[in-house]
Design a protein around this nucleic acid. Sequence first.
DNA 1: CTGAAAGCGCTTACAG
DNA 2: CTGAAAGCGCTTACAG
Lengths: 340, 340
Amino acid sequence: MATIGDVARIAGVSRSTASYALSGKRSISAEVREKVEQAVQQLRYTPNAGAKALATSQTKVIGLLAQFFEDEFAPAMLQYILGVTNRARDCGYDTLLLTEEDGVSALTRISASRMVDGFILLNVAENDDRLDPLRRAPQPGSLVGLPGDPSEIDVFDLDFAATGRLMVETLAELGHRELVLVSQPEHVLQRGGAYVWRLANAAREQAAELGVTLHHHFGSSTQPQIGRELDDLLDAHPNATGLLLNNEAAAAALPSVLQSRGISAPRDISVIGRYSDDFARTFSLPYTAIDSAAAELGRRAVEHLVSRIEGTSDSEKTVVDLIAPQIDDRGSTAVPPTRH
Amino acid sequence: MATIGDVARIAGVSRSTASYALSGKRSISAEVREKVEQAVQQLRYTPNAGAKALATSQTKVIGLLAQFFEDEFAPAMLQYILGVTNRARDCGYDTLLLTEEDGVSALTRISASRMVDGFILLNVAENDDRLDPLRRAPQPGSLVGLPGDPSEIDVFDLDFAATGRLMVETLAELGHRELVLVSQPEHVLQRGGAYVWRLANAAREQAAELGVTLHHHFGSSTQPQIGRELDDLLDAHPNATGLLLNNEAAAAALPSVLQSRGISAPRDISVIGRYSDDFARTFSLPYTAIDSAAAELGRRAVEHLVSRIEGTSDSEKTVVDLIAPQIDDRGSTAVPPTRH
DNA sequence: CTGAAAGCGCTTACAG
DNA sequence: CTGAAAGCGCTTACAG
């Protein structure tokens, strides 16, 4: 492969001049720049990334730490990942994807070997082991997912508390007085999926404030269990007229459950979920839902990280950016049926 | 950060000795090795990846080129990706994930800058633009997805022809005489998703051979279109007793369609799909199905690539490894109903 | 068994 | 506006 030495030779200049002509870091006569550019074309010269990284201490690579909780549906993570990789590329960065179980060792290994300029952590847990090593690392980091202690780090997340409130509020305004919330499996919560209780707690408080009864249940994440659980829940709460689903599997199983009970949404029951539009359309989740905003979160995390890396942002203040929930109305909410 | 020079100084040896002690590439006295290891511990020394890559021409990174067809469900790709990243790590490699639209430019850019030791291409199309640049690249590559011309490159894929045959055969043996196959959207096929027609053609041939009628249709990939299409198909082919689904959205929409028609599988109709177990369990796809084998394909592609990179495999022969289809029986097939 | 030195391919003060 | 040289942090023939 061609090196910058080859370029310099062909262009008839020194290596430093060739380098400066390419980086634009000092003024170069039009004539010389022209010759260098032609040599680059001719040789199809592309700088060696390792050599560049060694010389500049910049890799132009972002480390993306994915993390998967047991009982969580992994493919949903791809939308966050694509938000990150695509925006990163637009900013001139490539993405190293780290998926090993042990996120702490991945982080320390990659950080110490200087393979990346910064990190993005996905699916951050309430008490995430990766945060301390991240704080100690020389590279900056952005989180997707709000931890218990977000100090010193930039955080991006859907506002799950507002999501819980919005779900309850929406149905309360329509006149519903008794609701059931189905969350992710308790496993997910215990492993640190704080968004589960953040949504649930806010929903509960909002319900209390509005004088609405809210039953909270953890659901399974797979068929056929979740189908049976939903059926049992509807039996257990015959007066509930609204269903809030923070659980994709529940949203997928519900249509059959309702159909087999001979009821339908929104006539007999109102339903609001929380999942992304993509999943809704592919997997027949026909309910009004609050979008996960996955790709948008990935994008924001990248943008902020890049400005930290490049020193564009004031390194003083750390940011906690919570995206306001937005409802995709698919017509599954209405005033509750009048009981006789 | 500590360098190997620091390690050498603390251990009281030369840099070359420290380096050899760590790599084990020449014999080192136990005493010296001990001192070097202690110095490494003490300084938490980790080699600088850029410097190492520059010196050895090896990055220990694999480039993973994802590609998404319009109308294909992107998140399904994560299972392939995880198969790759996890196995790569086990083999000592990290993974650079490239998701930009223009796969050709990504490939040439990464290849020329020497950022990776090899490539894995996902979702390879019949006539994939990325193959020529890959053949010209100095790094080896593995494909997931069988292209029209697989020459010079190692290929891994589900055996879609055998899958099509197996679907037809399974129902034919049960006595079915008229089947409907619902494929991915025609878009996917036109963009080069050869697996769609490979499955369909083989199914058609097998049906002809067994004297079975097979109707082939392209389905939409989203609700509510696919639901209506399925309903129309059942109207159009009232004597069909078996449904073959090479389309996730169709599998997700079918339960409601059947229920609303007052029929069920396998009593009134037998169903076989093609999707992964994970999706089946999370999204209530209750049908017997042939698994996509996504993670396994990713793993095999990595293993073979690594052996090429490390010169373990005979560089002469190139391999085309097609995984035999396996049926997950979820009880949605039976003998056809007897008509009166 | 060990060390001094060259080299990988860049960038960037330093000097003119 | 341009060039010669040092340096980034490794590895690996070469010499002993």
